Amino acid sequence: MSNKTPMTVRGAEALRQELNELKTVARPKVIASIAEARAHGDLKENAEYHAAREQQSFIEGRIKDIEGKLSNAQIIDVSTVNAGGRVVFGATVDVLDLETDEEHCYQIVGEDEADIRHGRISVTSPIARALIGKSEGDEVEIQVPGGMREFEILEVRYI
């Protein structure tokens, strides 16, 4: 059993961009801030120095976190998936809430990529878990925090 974490190509690319930004911009900037604060003398009373050290600690921690996530990622290119209309990781799913008659569009992504404002839901969320394996035209009952909801899967896309 692999301990790989599923991630979309877009999610992996976003992490790589953030890592590059941290290493090439943020890290050098904070090192310069520490050097400048050191030049001001007594470090015990130097708030700029302590703030810069704290920022450096945060940046280094985030770099390690991202490197760990990327090293454990199983990157899935959804556009190459041929699931025959079935909902799989990375798929974009249009559903109809049968109670409210509202349409919703969700993409099922890794935990770190989830952003409900942009319609990206975690593969571990109740909605995603209920949709995975189902096909266009299926009706699905989903237990959500607000109670039981019933959705019809209108369309499944792999983009």
Rank of each mutant, 00 (worst) to 15 (best):
A83D: 06
F89C: 05
H118P: 01
V123Y: 13
Q107H: 06
I63M: 02
G61W: 04
E21S: 09
I108W: 12
R120W: 11
G110M: 10
R157Y: 03
R10D: 13
R10I: 15
E136N: 07
L131F: 12
A35D: 08
I76N: 07
R27P: 03
E113N: 06
I59D: 00
E67A: 04
V140P: 14
F89Q: 09
V30M: 12
L96W: 00
E48P: 05
R117E: 01
I66D: 03
A130P: 03
T8Y: 05
I59C: 01
E13W: 08
E99F: 12
L154C: 08
L98P: 04
Q56H: 01
T80L: 15
G84W: 02
E18I: 08
S2G: 10
R129M: 15
E136I: 09
D101M: 13
N20Q: 15
R86I: 01
L96Y: 01
E99S: 15
I127Q: 01
P126L: 11
E36C: 09
Q56L: 12
E60V: 08
A52R: 03
T24N: 14
N82F: 13
Y106C: 04
Q55K: 13
E102S: 08
P6W: 05
L96C: 00
G41E: 07
A39I: 11
M7E: 06
E54D: 12
E18F: 00
V144M: 13
R129D: 02
G137C: 04
L96Q: 00
K44E: 00
Q56I: 02
A39Y: 11
I66F: 02
I153Y: 05
L70Q: 09
R53S: 11
G68H: 11
A47L: 14
V109R: 09
Q107L: 08
N72Q: 10
T5H: 09
K69V: 09
V87P: 11
V88A: 15
G41R: 06
I108R: 07
G90Q: 03
E150L: 15
E60D: 12
E152P: 13
S135R: 02
S122Q: 07
E13H: 09
V123D: 14
L131V: 06
A73D: 02
E13P: 07
V88D: 12
G146Y: 06
L131T: 03
R117T: 05
S57D: 05
K134M: 10
A130L: 03
E152W: 08
E54I: 14
S71N: 01
Y158P: 00
A83H: 09
R117F: 06
S71Y: 01
G119T: 10
T92F: 06
V140L: 08
K69F: 09
M7A: 10
F89D: 02
H50S: 10
A73N: 03
R62W: 07
R120H: 06
V9E: 06
I63Q: 04
R129Y: 11
E54M: 11
E54P: 11
E141T: 14
C105N: 13
V87Y: 15
E45H: 14
N82L: 15
H104R: 05
Q143L: 14
D65Q: 13
P145D: 00
S71K: 02
F151A: 00
R129P: 04
L96H: 08
E36Y: 14
E103I: 10
E48H: 10
N82V: 04
P6Q: 00
I75Q: 13
